[in-house]
Amino acid sequence: MPMSIWEQQAVEAAVLEALGEVHLNNPAGHHFGRPYLSAYQLAIKVNRAHPQIATELGVSVGGAGTGTRTSLAQYLARVLSQRIKQSPDSYPVEGAFLSNEHVDSVAFHDADGASITSSLSQSGFDLSLFRLRDVSPTVNG
């Protein structure tokens, strides 16, 4: 059986690396935990460190105006969502949504400073968010 691009390109390792490098603006130990990244932010970080993944998939990071419905952001969100669903308590990444309610637009900038506007704004679809799962033991006391 041929290996998938996810396996061939070690995409999970690239995702874990990108999520592990998220700058923490709040002091360590904040009760909210680690910050989430949108699928776009994650795709930008993965693409900057591992551009061969998007090349192998034949996609760009994504965004409004790209003229395509497939993107690295969409691919990462879809596969991560599937893996989280299969192992909700043990997969090293957790997901959430940012509601699209009362959102006009959400824009990001890639590693080169080019603007990327979410194609999900005002679409009726919420924006996928991902972060590393907190695996520290909980102490009740």
Rank of each mutant, 00 (worst) to 15 (best):
G141T: 15
D112Y: 09
M1W: 00
L72S: 06
E101A: 08
S118K: 01
S119Q: 01
E17W: 08
Q9V: 07
S121Y: 13
A10Q: 15
P27W: 06
S105H: 13
F32L: 13
R133F: 04
Q74K: 13
E17Q: 13
S136Y: 08
D112W: 09
D126I: 02
R69E: 14
T117C: 05
V22T: 14
P92G: 01
L132K: 02
S99H: 14
G29E: 01
A14V: 04
I5F: 10
F130S: 00
E17P: 03
H102P: 02
Q52R: 11
S99I: 14
L127A: 06
T66K: 10
Q122K: 12
E56N: 10
P2W: 02
F32Y: 12
L127Q: 08
Q8M: 09
V11H: 01
G124H: 07
S121N: 11
V79M: 09
S87F: 01
H102V: 07
A107R: 10
S87D: 05
V59R: 12
E94V: 02
D126Y: 05
D112H: 10
G29P: 00
D134I: 12
Q52A: 12
D104I: 12
T70E: 15
A114C: 08
R34F: 12
V103H: 04
A13V: 05
Y91V: 02
L132H: 05
V106T: 11
L16C: 03
L120E: 06
T138M: 14
A114L: 11
N25L: 15
G67S: 11
A18P: 10
P27T: 06
S60I: 08
R78E: 11
N26I: 10
S38F: 10
A107E: 14
A77D: 00
R69K: 13
V103C: 08
T70Q: 15
N47C: 02
S115H: 05
G29R: 00
N26R: 12
K85L: 02
F108L: 10
S87R: 04
L76C: 13
A114Q: 12
S4A: 03
E12A: 03
V139M: 14
M1L: 04
A10M: 11
L80T: 06
G20L: 06
I116C: 04
T55S: 11
V135C: 07
R34W: 09
A64Q: 06
S121D: 13
Y75K: 09
V79N: 07
H109P: 03
A64K: 06
E94A: 00
F97T: 11
Y40G: 05
A39Q: 05
R34G: 11
R131S: 10
P92E: 03
I5T: 14
S115D: 07
D134Q: 11
A73C: 09
E94T: 01
Q122M: 09
V139R: 13
V15G: 00
M1K: 01
A14N: 02
A114Y: 12
